[in-house]
Design a protein around this nucleic acid. Structure first.
Lengths: 197, 197, 197, 197
DNA sequence: GATGAATGAGCTTTCATTCAT
DNA sequence: CATGAATGAAAGCTCATTCAT
């Protein structure tokens, strides 16, 4: 029984994932999800209290993991490895292993939370992510002469995250994803360094 | 009479602009637009044939101007001024005057056309813009050893346009907009040059 | 002025004729009529008080003429010419000249009144026409043994009128119309005579 | 549960039947149907996907049966029984038993399909029925000198079907219906034979 | 005479949600 | 556990009609 229950629950979550990813929270249809899950809409409400509850359930783990990483991660290692080097390939290797840590949260549900959550309590997560990244940039640059405005820094941070989202959305192969993200981060770092000169 | 008509028409267009900008074409509500414009829905239909017709009317000029610029603009001057220089300030000045040409189309309606038009015939404009920009990048880099994959090039192009959109969305002052865009373009050029080394 | 006024009035009536003939009273659109007439809807109301008033105006003359014929026409001549004959061509000639009298009311407006007037005060005209025709049949048959039920008589009458309507609707050439109607009436007379045997 | 569902479904279908029969597909109102069925419109959509789906459901069986009869029926028996006879009562008996075969499809829903289906995929059924009947007439007359034009033949076929429709619309008693249709067909056969002489 | 602005009620349809069984 | 009946609000849209100018 419990098995079956969990199975159905997972089916609903899986179909929700597709629906939310395609249409976003607001335009997703519970009717569609129920139909695709092979059950009645009433039964969906048996497992989840509301559309928003279903959404929250879908991205809960991703959000927790995401918050945990934001609070606990350290990029000191990255910095120590790379700060003095001028060799691109060294940078690349370090960046790649750094980004590999994030692999577990690079899921569709993470993507949904960041980019398809308008109308839910998660709709501001992307913005917070941007702020976090921006704070990091500032910290790394605090000993250097600031060469761009705070607003521009926010813009760059937002761009970087939008890039990550685009990669998650368009590339499915894990290694290709990592390669692309590595290049993307490298690209942004080079841009920043270029402007700092 | 004619005056009043034009006035109300403009009121509807102005309220539509807000509504489309906030919710996008699909989720925008004609009832809301009507209420905000101080009239009944029926009267909105007196001015515009349909929701899509209203949308088209809203972005028509922007789209025309946009297409014109895409087809007629030349960046040769930009290139000749800057290709040999290594001075950032020279680059900046050239870029800024180049981007200033686009000022007339940097409006909320242009933003709506690019970013809030899902469900209309304009929904592919952003994608075409990305392709256009990408083709330009490739042309400028054709004599240099290509240092990133086509996919990465597309990503960068997309990023740049998303950046433009973000600037349009968050900054209202025209000069500040131009400054920010100049920096953004410079940033991307520096990134590309950095990776080419 | 008066000329112009009448002209416009006639334009509206002409466009109404097309619209009512195509869609019937209920589904006809005053907007369409106004647009086709090259004027605003308000102006249509300047000439006619309402949709129904416009309709009434359109078919008024036809209705009057129709009623007049119903009340004054005599088919004695037809009878005297034909009752003793067994020659089809004689019948045909008589019938044709008899039906030719009705030519003036065989118009599109007559057709509209009979067949496209649901929702107006004319919607029962067809039924009254049927009753009238049925009464005539009965009169002509009163000296003969009645060979079918009153209900069947009504049915035949209705059929005949539906036939006339079909002819008016599908044939535009006046002579061809008359030929066809002559054949139709002949056909019905032969049917009745056949059943009387 | 299932019972109640079927019950309400049938209620909706029954009320739809009345509404479509009175106003035709296009002018029928789902609001009215819902109100008459004692429920909200939303719930009507719980049972049927759309107005057209409801209509199709209503006439589906009738249409299938109708098509089957058109494709499989044979009137050879009718012909062999009657062709040489001149006795009206013999004809009548044969025609009556022939028409009795059609009893199952002589329903209000058949009537709706034929005559109230403008705007649905069934709107051409009546025309096809006319063509079918006309082709039959021609076949039966192929060894005789043709005495009327093709157009007149079509007219007669249309008339016959309009007569069937009128009978279905005005007479509810099954036997009376059959009697009336028998007389109607006889009447038309006599008319044709009369003109052939 | 003529314009066209404005209304209010109607239409079909979709939706999230509730609840008795 | 699960069904599916039912609701009420909202959507885009069309219509005949009224009326100030």
């Amino acid at each position: 029984m419990q098995y079956k229950k969990d199975e159905l629950r997972d089916t609903i979550l899986a179909e929700s994932e597709k629906e939310f990813l395609k249409k976003g929270y607001r335009n997703a249809s519970l009717r569609q999800i129920a139909k695709r899950s092979g059950m009645t809409i009433g039964n969906v409400y048996h497992y989840f209290d509301s559309k928003e509850a279903l959404f929250n359930e879908l991205v809960k783990h991703e959000h927790d993991a995401f918050i945990y990483i934001l609070n606990h991660h350290s990029d000191r290692e990255l910095m120590s490895n790379t700060s003095q080097s001028v060799d691109l390939t060294v940078w690349k290797r370090s960046l790649r292993s750094f980004l590999a840590e994030f692999k577990p949260i690079f899921t569709n549900r993470f993507l949904i939370m960041l980019d398809m959550s308008e109308g839910t309590k998660y709709e501001h997560t992307k913005g917070e992510f941007v702020k976090f990244l921006n704070a990091h940039f500032l910290e790394h640059l605090k000993n250097q002469p600031i060469v761009f405005s705070p607003k521009f820094g926010e813009l760059i941070s937002k761009q970087l995250i939008e890039g990550v989202i685009t990669i998650l959305r368009t590339i499915t192969d894990e290694n290709e994803r990592l390669d692309m993200m590595t290049d993307l981060f490298l690209f942004y770092i080079l841009g920043i360094m270029g402007m700092a000169k």
